[in-house]
Design a protein around this nucleic acid. Structure first.
Lengths: 189, 189
DNA sequence: TGTGAATTTCAGAAGTTTCTGAAACTTCGG
DNA sequence: CCGAAGTTTCAGAAACTTCTGAAATTCACA
């Protein structure tokens, strides 16, 4: 691998973490390389930088495109595909969240929904359904929050994050303001 | 596998999802089984229910304990270990978030921190450091929010989630309250 | 200290994923 | 239609993970 040491460290780290993130080493390395590269790279440049086979690069790029984590770029009078990552790290976060939800959460949600429609006959089944119901409600609540928040522009999302738990105080304060101003029901929660 | 069909479906699903969640099939199945079981189970009962080897159960339980996802229980006059999952699904969520952060985020944060301390000499390195800086700031912001929110009791956390993006309006409204003095912030709609 | 039930460890078999090089395919200018 | 440049596919090799049964270890109690 023929890269400046700092860049190499970053690329190798993403390779190692790949397996923990549900992608493989090569995919992680390619992503890292594209992320820090000042220009889009073509497949052959990736082969040279990482010293892996052309076919491996091809398959890994496909996978990254399936995740919507890399973009295709073209140059005038050049037939080759060039690859890059989105500029905005918040946009990358949104994509990552969306894809992980799709792969890691949605299938479970739909299995739970189906099972919860079935009739429980034995006590064991009734208890199981009760537990699955708890799990289902939790996941629903999380995904509802996510769906609500995911469309926010970056500045608002960032603002929301920096509020953190202060929001709960604000909620209470707002209840007071509201109820003093004109009697109103409490905000849910 | 000798389980009621509804329970079997749930257990098999967790097994299949296991690889997407960074655990393996057996670990996923055992977790699912413990989660819906009305009583703690001992290793031998897991062997019978899932029809897998005793040693596989032993190793998988170790892994689940390393994740803090299962608890040990004992019965009077019985030397065997019995295993169960925490009752409260919100507590499970907290544990899961904590462990995933520890494994999937913290190592990257510390690699980024180290690299950002180094001196960039070439323009490529300077650009790489700029990008890593963006990534680092994003992760810091997310983990700061997480650290802030993770200690909330369930009812507050749940309330915060059900507010979703409405919070941003509340933030703006609260600015107005502060600036105008006693205008009433809208909570709903 | 010896016994036996419960548990863990471990070497290797079985299964899965990743990677490569070679061949096949696609596209486009001449 | 040809050839050159680029890209994808694929069979099998290499590497890695998971699983098992057998052996080793632990531990309560007589």
């Amino acid at each position: 691998m023929n890269l400046p040491p700092m860049i190499q460290a970053f690329v190798l780290h993403f390779g190692e973490m790949g397996s923990r993130w549900g992608i493989n080493r090569t995919v992680g390395q390619i992503y890292a390389l594209l992320f820090i590269s000042p220009e889009p790279l073509c497949a052959e440049q990736i082969v040279e930088a990482l010293e892996i086979s052309r076919s491996n690069v091809s398959i890994s790029l496909r996978e990254l495109m399936a995740w919507n984590l890399v973009l295709l770029r073209h140059r005038p009078d050049d037939r080759r595909d060039f690859f890059t990552t989105p500029e905005d790290v918040w946009q990358i976060l949104r994509t990552l969240a969306e894809e992980r939800k799709k792969r890691e959460v949605d299938p479970t949600l739909s299995v739970l929904r189906e099972i919860l429609l079935e009739d429980a006959t034995t006590p064991a089944e009734r208890h199981a359904q009760k537990r699955m119901g708890e799990m289902h409600r939790l996941i629903e609540q999380l995904t509802t929050w996510y769906d609500d928040v995911k469309g926010l522009e970056t500045s608002r999302l960032s603002g929301l994050l920096s509020m953190g738990r202060k929001v709960t105080r604000l909620m209470e304060a707002s209840n007071k303001v509201v109820s003093i101003g004109r009697a109103r029901p409490r905000v849910k929660g």
